[in-house]
């Protein structure tokens, strides 16, 4: 079999997909990044190679997510793309005709508006992570509810309570307040979902024209309570597509497929990199008062990439420029 790999290294999860030559998702992996992106990518690669038949040929690799450059140099990616573009590509391929993409991931949330298959506008949350997956994760942990059953519980609510969703810190104290007043858990969870949706629509989607079909993707789309809250607020159906939690990786794979469809050889280093030793080192450059913290990525004893400098003194010295752009 021949195909393409898509890798999305996010703050919370690292996802890998394998697409066949027709662009269909054959294998998908969803792993927790656990703060160790390099090790997680390696683990993902070794798991992926176990899932694929022997003698599978990888014709191209695409990486995305906040760790895209890191994953890119480790695997030898052919395409390194930002997560907004990859999410848009994936949803417009899997849900033809989609006009709005709501994406909520671990640390960020996005809204992408597509018109006639093209990105027309987008927004991404700024420094504040209120209303993202991490916050839901944290609240689920506080209430000792497995995150997988969060949505189900929220759906049992008959009367969601009103919770302030503007800020994660305030939302938490509001939730505790409601819980101490004796509201039942399902109503509090459903209220939290509604608060997050309100926050999302008022901040990120402020002034944006949300037209159906609307696709809801990212890790948080697993939460059926969130889907219901979106539908209640928007007044129409929200589609959670197949592979909703690995859409970034699907998009990266699709872009790799598009770029490598000719006879270009891939830069993929092979599944062997799962066993190679990668290390990150670094130093503070003293070239000027910017004092940039330069990160070096080692493959065994060789430096394969450097970044973190503002002027390009280090990053320009060895990386393959055309890929890190």
């Amino acid at each position: 079999m021949k195909g393409y790999l898509g890798i999305d290294v996010g703050s919370v999860s690292t996802n890998l997909v394998f697409l066949d030559e027709g662009g269909t998702v054959r294998e998908a992996l969803y792993l927790r990044t656990n703060g160790r992106p390099i090790a997680t990518v390696q683990q993902g690669l070794s798991e992926m190679s176990g899932c694929l038949p022997a003698r599978t040929v990888i014709r191209g690799v695409g990486t995305t997510g906040s760790g895209r450059h890191l994953a890119g140099v480790i695997t030898g990616a052919d395409v390194i793309k930002n997560e907004i573009t990859t999410h848009a590509v994936a949803s417009s391929t899997l849900v033809p005709g989609v006009r709005t993409v709501l994406e909520i991931g671990g640390q960020d949330s996005k809204i992408i508006l597509l018109r006639e298959g093209m990105v027309a506008d987008f927004a991404m949350n700024t420094v504040c992570a209120a209303g993202t997956g991490s916050f839901l994760d944290q609240q689920a942990a506080r209430l000792t509810i497995p995150i997988d059953s969060f949505g189900e519980l929220a759906l049992q609510s008959t009367l969601p309570v009103r919770i302030a969703g503007r800020c994660a810190v305030f939302a938490e104290s509001d939730m505790i307040h409601k819980q101490q007043m004796g509201y039942n858990l399902a109503d509090i969870l459903a209220g939290l979902c509604e608060a997050l949706v309100r926050n999302y629509l008022n901040n990120l989607a402020k002034g944006k024209e949300i037209l159906p079909p609307v696709v809801f993707q990212g890790g948080v789309a697993a939460n059926s309570g969130m889907k219901k809250a979106f539908e209640k607020e928007l007044g129409f159906e929200v589609i959670v597509p197949p592979h909703y939690n690995v859409m970034g990786a699907v998009g990266a794979g699709l872009l790799a497929r598009e770029k490598m469809s000719g006879s270009m050889p891939t830069g993929f280093k092979g599944f062997r990199v799962a066993g190679t030793e990668f290390k990150a080192g670094g130093f503070e450059c003293d070239g000027c008062s910017n004092l940039c913290e330069v990160v070096e990525i080692y493959e065994e004893s060789d430096v394969i990439a450097r970044w973190g400098d503002r002027c390009g003194r280090w990053s320009g010295s060895l990386t393959r420029e055309e890929k890190i752009s």
């Binding site: 793309k81 930002n82 907004i84 573009t85 093209m118 990105v119 987008f122 991404m124 700024t126 420094v127």
Partner: peptide, 27 residues
């Protein structure tokens, strides 16, 4: 002063992708 470069780069890349796709499609 707290803005991270990664956030700016990601948005800018998505923005230029958006323009380039439109240019490619001729609209």
């Amino acid at each position: 002063e707290h803005t991270g470069e990664a956030g700016v780069v990601t948005r800018l890349e998505a923005f230029t992708d958006m323009i380039n796709l439109r240019l490619a499609s001729g609209s």
